[in-house]
Write a protein that binds this DNA or RNA. Structure first.
Lengths: 211, 211
DNA sequence: GTTTGAAATGACCGTTTTGGTCATTACTAT
DNA sequence: ATAGTAATGACCAAAACGGTCATTTCAAAC
């Protein structure tokens, strides 16, 4: 008896996973995201994941079959979830850079409420060094990238004063928000709303000195 | 016959290490810094280090005795090297924030020329999760922190316009420079001077919109 | 309260990797 | 040649790895 089926996206797994209580699904997903995010594919151990999730090792492999399948499932899940939140939070006709970034942060906050380590998982994946892991998620990577590109493509940076280079400002903001999240996730009691309000402060300050 | 002696700083190692050609010393140090920086203490393997350094495993343990001793030696070495460069690059009577940051970047560039992964090693150590590794370097961590605190203590932020909060600006700049370095180290041909000139651009832009 | 089928377990497996050792070899300077 | 140190890498016991499976737990149906 085989328990693996092929999902729409092509990630082999046992669909019975989705019959679990949502809380348990998310506990497994979050534990996996966290351990992968912290150590990368190769140095992430399934023992650590099941310990973090509070489930048995057998169960993890019952649902996902292999470590690589789990990784692919997670990536697919992240791309779907992130793009959904982004699309519903950012109006396609918005052109102001800082407004878009605030909307994007609101989307991020929604993501973090359900999956605190989802953003870190994606961040870490950008420097993934395991060849197989990269190969098996390349299409998903491109899909996510094109969404980000699309959002930035609608920006009109006309309001920037001449001393403020939009590209440099964007790089700075991205770096700042990323390390802000990294720092706050490190601390024991992570709070998405706290992260969000901190992020908005930086965006507002940047806006006030860039316009 | 024991080959381990106690150095001034209290890190047990074989002093004969310093009799090696400087190039070989640095090859071993850089390989160790790189592997530790990429994986953290626990998931860093000595096999990876010797492969990266192009030496035999026996030699590494001949000089450093154990993985933990190597880690402590590296930390000690970094603190000494960083504080030396910082002290010689930043005048104690300089009060302007952006000038100090530029001097600090010049110091960093000098460090990177000899040890490209030194800064990343220290960065990674800030989120080290191995208890023993943290405990055994706690005094060195404090020493380095007090140096950074001292430098920032001499800053007079009077010239900042009211919309630009100095603390927030500093956080942003730190994050930006860190991810700038991280990105460039990722690429195959890392160039300290290239990193430096990129960093200066960000500092200049920030200065022009903060004053 | 018994039956039943799926959910869940964790001891266990073979393999790989780990930090660390040491008998041996290579090299260099007399 | 000789002597002494630099350097090697096969080797070790122990741990960790991804993955399996016989067994147990559990909840719903009768």
């Amino acid at each position: 008896m085989t328990v693996l089926v092929i999902t729409i996206k092509g990630v082999p797994m046992n669909d019975k996973f989705f019959d679990l209580k949502k809380e348990k699904q998310d506990r497994i997903i979050n534990a996996s995201l966290k351990i992968f995010a912290e150590n990368g594919y190769k140095h992430c151990s399934t023992d650590d994941i099941v310990r973090e999730a509070g489930i048995s090792k057998g169960l993890l492999f019952h649902y996902f079959g292999s470590k690589m399948n789990l990784y692919e499932f997670l990536y697919d899940y992240c791309v779907k979830f992130l793009s959904m939140e982004l699309k519903s939070s950012i109006p396609t006709d918005e052109k102001d850079y800082f407004t878009i970034m605030k909307d994007s942060e609101a989307a991020k906050r929604n993501v973090l409420r359900s999956y605190p380590y989802m953003q870190m998982f994606i961040n870490r994946s950008m420097t993934e060094d395991d060849e197989d892991a990269v190969d098996n998620t390349s299409n998903l990577r491109e899909e996510l990238q094109s969404i980000y590109d699309g959002i930035l493509g609608q920006v009109d940076s006309g309001k920037f004063r001449k001393e403020a280079d939009p590209a440099q400002v964007h790089t700075m903001l991205q770096s700042t928000l990323r390390s802000l999240m990294s720092d706050q996730l490190q601390s024991s009691a992570f709070n998405p709303d706290h992260y969000y309000s901190d992020g908005i402060k930086y965006i507002n300050m940047l806006q006030s000195i860039c316009y």
